[in-house]
Amino acid sequence: MALINFLKPKNQLEEGGRTAAPVQQDAGEPEKKCPNCHKEIPLSRLWANHLVCPCGYHFRMKARQRIQMLADKDSFQERDGSWKRGNPLGFPGYQEKMETAQVASGEEEAVICGTARLGGYPCCLFVMEPYFMMGSMGSVVGEKITRLFEYAVDHQLPVIGFTVSGGARMQEGLLSLIQMAKTSGAVKRHSDAGLLYIAVLTDPTTGGVTASFAMEADILLAEPGATVGFAGARVVEQTTQKALPKGFQKAEFVLEHGFLDAIVSRGSQKKVLTQLLSLHAKGGPI
């Protein structure tokens, strides 16, 4: 069935080749073709390099793997992990889509929130999940992020957020749209409390997430090559009937236009984030 085909390549890559079925010895090491340099890269090599191709191309990464890469060992404590919402508008096919997304991602929803330490510095951390309906924002995503910012205010903690999103989740209609307002209110309260918020925009960060909490951070970082924009490139092309400029909506293009502080490759993220936390810390690491 289509579901299996959809899952297989992604999970193989994301698990670093550790799929349920053992890899046949005589089949050779599994490889993944890089869409940038078009070379076949052994999965073990990609895995060792945080899913970055030697050419610099950043493959998509599951939220839990990012957390593992970023948070100090055993420091991550998830919050609101079982937060749920049904199908509030009774939107046709939504329930099934959610179930498929749960299987594909191994997650209940499109964001993981919690507290962690980075280089010893405590913070709140949210990481969006590309394999759950491409990180689309419905009630649960908005609510969990809002609750995390509220927790951060109560505990005087900085927030680090990794975004990846196709935008608001249309199957929840206006309730999704309104999450943009809700999360923005929570970010503002956190900001007014004098607390630091760093967003790292990963591929792709678009639509209602770009137009709310992703772009509201004090410090805006992005991964190399990440698409960052409001409208999808295809929609822009259809609306304007013109060819798009080279590199349109890529992080490098967005940086050039003044909407990012820096582009940070995956291998340097923990170091840069720790440095930024330390530059804002009132106390030292714990």
């Binding site: 503002k188 900001s191 678009t206 639509g207 770009t210 137009a211 709310s212 772009m215 509201e216 409001f230």
Partner: peptide
């Protein structure tokens, strides 16, 4: 565009 909308919401 996204940044402009976000700033208004904020």
């Amino acid at each position: 565009q996204g940044c402009a909308i976000a700033q208004n919401l904020l």
